[in-house]
Nucleic acid binder design. Structure first.
Lengths: 341, 341
DNA sequence: TTGAAAGCGCTAACAT
DNA sequence: ATGTTAGCGCTTTCAA
């Protein structure tokens, strides 16, 4: 038998209004009655009907706040596409998405942005943000206040967030190493690592797992140098040029963050399109480099799905459809070569 | 301003009941009135509200019929998983899924199965079926009767279906070839092709594009033999054994259909785990072969998403959310090696 | 603190 | 051939 507000009300011997107040913690109900109703709801396995809710309250939509550091980072273009897909799809079920875009990874900027979303009245938040103690504490405070928090693209350690939606950076690094191990025709790899930032957990994991995987794959290699681009193409280009001039025996460049276009420019400038260049994410400019054969393969992480599912999860959480400790949504680690771009 | 049945009724100067009858072609309306309302609906861009519909008619759910040749073919396990996910997700929006499973690719069996679904009252059909004239004609007849037809996993040429949900077999074949081209450390590939059936369009496309891609990749190769397994592991094993014994210089096996486990068994039996074995789809047994290093990589096609999106498309079509000629849903062509299985 | 009632958009049964 | 009405599950007044 279907469990509805009406059937709960009958079972508890109260009115539907009272049940509704209890279910939404809107107060003004005698504590013992509230408890009875809550117990009943759990016992019967009450799950709100989305259609009923959407229809009744379509003028007060679920507000979902989203924070992404997308300014100046084309990676998030696809994430935004996914966000918009979900936004349109769930519009008639009563959601409203507020998007806050920031530049870079400054904690204070991010905290301010989250605060902005909270003040806008969002009860669910999808956050692509930094892994720092301050942010962790803020997130946990919000969780305690029953905000629905989804972490997007980058997890934040030690948080009570509902779930993480994004890629498995370890697996991505290992996959890169695994691919290289298959090209065992080069007897010795002298590798230059161009990372985005040593402060980014994901980038470090990509490096760590990459090395590990090369060792397991019995690849002869040496990390000649590791340079930081701060996700800037210009810096990436300069650093790559410098490193390759300094040591022309380098025959592999591993790019873990943004700045891929800069690395490509350096390789073209030096005429070093022979070496094994590997990178992440299929930005337009990166795809061009693969097409041209300068980058041999890239590893991608389904950014569109990340944006889409973050919003979807947030909606489902607000609509009470999610069983409490809900699984992370880990996107696939996808190898792209010229043929399947 | 929001366009509803009510606002349409007011604009047309009729009652909501009449508008509803027109919108659902339920007859009993003067033709000129019907025309006027239909024109109005188009002009105003009326899109039915899913929540309203779900609520009003949840005792008469949208019936979606699904046909898959899953008996004896583990590939469809994941497709079924996706179907069930969608089924549960959309249950409270009023869908009912009727699943018809058949064995093999006999046209008559398939026609009978489709007919069964139609007689069960399904107004939308997701079909994984054969590409034959008889089936094409039947599908087109149904399309004319305003059935919503989604073709799943295998397209049927020359049909007026709403859309195709599945993989791009050409791209998959080309990707296999592209991968091989990257392993250019073997100077000459002598290739044995183990195909499922020459009657399967997808398998043929995988072969065709594979060859093409090898040529473009300037790979030295020769197709030594092409054998058929009829998607049976036993036949695949026998044929592989026979071919490898006959010509031990074969150093690459390309498996386009089911029967992967059989091929693996043959390679193990002959101690030929050195050669380059390539296959499709990540069945459990196939993954084991990759883990063991016997198959070097596989190409997969996201079967879960195929099942999920077929049902989703069918629902959206029935709910009038789909703009008429709707795009195909092509799943990604995914390369899996040991590290990202 | 609680109940009663109206209404969201749509459909189906019934009435005219 | 067309209009009227009730009700799906839920939220939100307003009244008690």
């Amino acid at each position: 038998m279907k469990v509805t507000v009406k059937s709960l009300a009958e079972a508890a011997g109260v009115s539907r209004g009272t049940v509704d107040r209890v279910l939404h913690d809107r107060g003004a109900v005698k504590p013992e009655v509230a408890l009875r109703i809550k117990t009943l709801a759990r016992e019967f396995g009450y799950v709100p009907n989305r259609a009923g809710r959407a229809l009744a309250a379509f003028k007060t939509p679920y507000k979902i706040g989203t924070l992404i550091p997308s300014i100046g980072n084309r990676f998030f273009d696809d994430v935004k596409t996914g966000i918009n897909q979900a936004k349109e799809e769930y519009a008639d079920l009563g959601i409203e998405v507020i998007l806050k875009e920031v530049q870079g990874y400054d904690v204070e900027d991010h905290l301010e942005a989250v605060n902005y979303l909270v003040e806008k009245g969002c009860r669910a938040l999808c956050l692509a943000t930094v892994d720092t103690p301050k942010m962790r504490d803020y997130i946990n405070k919000l969780c305690d206040d029953n905000f629905k928090i989804i972490l997007l693209n980058n997890d934040v350690s030690g948080t009570k967030r509902l779930c993480y939606v994004g890629s498995d950076y370890q697996k991505a690094g290992a996959t890169c190493g695994g691919m290289l191990a298959m090209f065992s025709h080069v007897s010795f790899y002298k590798i230059l690592i161009v990372t985005g930032s040593r402060l980014m957990l994901g980038h470090n994991q990509r490096i760590q797992a990459f090395k590990q995987s090369l060792i397991e794959g019995k690849v002869n290699f040496e990390i000649v140098a590791t340079v930081e681009s701060n996700d800037s193409d210009i810096i990436a280009q300069e650093e790559t040029l410098k490193a390759l001039r300094h040591d022309p025996s380098i025959n592999c460049v591993y790019v873990t963050g943004a700045g891929v276009q800069g690395v490509g420019a350096a390789l073209i400038a030096l005429g070093r399109t022979d070496l094994m260049a590997i990178a992440y994410d299929d930005l337009y400019t990166t795809k061009e480099l693969v097409q041209a054969g300068i980058i041999k393969f890239i590893i991608t992480q389904q950014p569109i799905r990340q944006g889409y599912h973050a919003i979807k999860r947030a909606y489902l959480a607000l609509a009470g459809q999610l069983t409490d400790p809900c699984e992370d949504f880990i996107t696939d680690t996808i190898i792209k070569i010229k043929a399947n771009l």
